[in-house]
Amino acid sequence: MNNYPFGSNSPKSFNAYPRGDFDLESGTIKRIRRPRNSSFYPIRMIKSFANRLHYYYKLHPLLVFFISLSFGVTILIVLSLYEHHYRMLSNYRKLDDGFNINYPFAKLKNLVMVAGHSVYTSSSCGKVDKEDSWFLESYQKNPGQAATFLAHIKEGIEITARDGEALLLFSGGETRKDAGPRSEAQSYWTVAESKGWFGKEESVKWRSLTEEHARDSFENLLFSVCRFRELTGTYPHNITVVSYDFKEERFAHLHRSAIGFPESRFLYTGTPASTSSKEAALKGEALVRIQFQQDPYGCSGPLKRKKVGRDPFHRSIPYPNGCPEIEGLFRYCGAAPYPGSLPWAL
């Protein structure tokens, strides 16, 4: 007797039933439904969407056109914002690329800025509270004026002493021709040194520096932010400005808004003007506020002319080389707020 192996190669093997499910009741074979070819399904979806779009376009051509246009513009805006954001973050590391930069004050997080208002001209530091030791404009020649400068210096030092993460910057350029090539910032630093840093030398002197190019109050703020970036490698988390109390609206609202800095992280400390100059100071401040309301960045008209007049030695301003992430803010000139992205707004 011959034994044949079972299997597909066996001469006895055959398909008893066709492929499929056999229905015993009806005696028919149910064909197995083949799955759709998934590789062609997305193409059919796209074609279907295109056909529907074409159909609706025939019914409502203007509506479909405006919807498509709006969608396209939205995509372009999103891509533009993403590209600008990516470029700004890339620029944030621009200064460090290829270099092993150790920022001297990398651990400091907050900025205390004292705005300069005059240049110290005396050859001796023994009369810092006397008006004839300072170069004063006609509107500044009032009894007690020098004492207000000292009050600003002392206030900035005391605020810095209370904050171990603060960097103190005296801000102000070489603004007076007859005072010689001496800056307001260096004058304030020298006076602080002569006063022994008001008893806070050990804790404050090592983190007190100057910003020596500002020609007006807006530049006091903007340039100091850039100078902070140069010294720490980052931008300040909190900003405290020290100046006259009647200038609070100008700094805390107009200038802060112009650079888009968060209100919750911006502090202002104002000291009073001398009694004899207060009335005139308030009138002058009202005029300057109106000018900055019309020209927030001080880049045209009377504010521009004032800055030019306060640069008698034609100093080249190094910014924004030290803060490339906000180069656009330095170049911007307009009545509306700066539309670009800013590091402190991320």
Rank of each mutant, 00 (worst) to 15 (best):
G173H: 01
E131V: 08
N15D: 13
A273M: 09
Y55R: 02
W134A: 04
N110Q: 05
A280G: 06
K306S: 14
F40D: 12
V204H: 04
H85Q: 08
A335R: 04
S243R: 01
K307R: 14
M1K: 09
P339Y: 05
Y92T: 05
F251Q: 08
A16M: 10
Q293F: 04
C125K: 09
Y244S: 13
F266A: 11
A280V: 09
F246H: 11
L62C: 00
R331A: 14
L89V: 04
I67D: 01
F135R: 15
D21R: 14
S274W: 00
G301V: 12
N37I: 13
Y319Q: 10
S183G: 03
S341P: 01
K247M: 03
K94F: 06
L136G: 07
K58L: 10
V241H: 11
F65N: 03
E131W: 02
I259T: 10
E137V: 02
F149S: 06
G116P: 03
Y338A: 10
E279L: 11
S118T: 11
S122T: 06
S26L: 13
L59M: 11
E25R: 03
S224Y: 09
A147M: 00
R52A: 13
R52I: 13
A115W: 00
R305A: 15
E83N: 04
T234G: 13
G334H: 07
G156L: 10
R289C: 08
S10W: 06
F266G: 10
I326L: 02
I43F: 12
P181A: 08
G180V: 04
I326E: 02
W134D: 07
L79S: 12
R52W: 10
S123L: 13
G298D: 08
V241N: 03
D129M: 04
N91A: 09
D311F: 05
A252G: 12
Y17C: 07
L267H: 10
S70R: 03
Q186I: 02
V308A: 14
D23E: 09
F170W: 01
F313Q: 08
Q294W: 09
H85N: 07
H84W: 06
R52D: 14
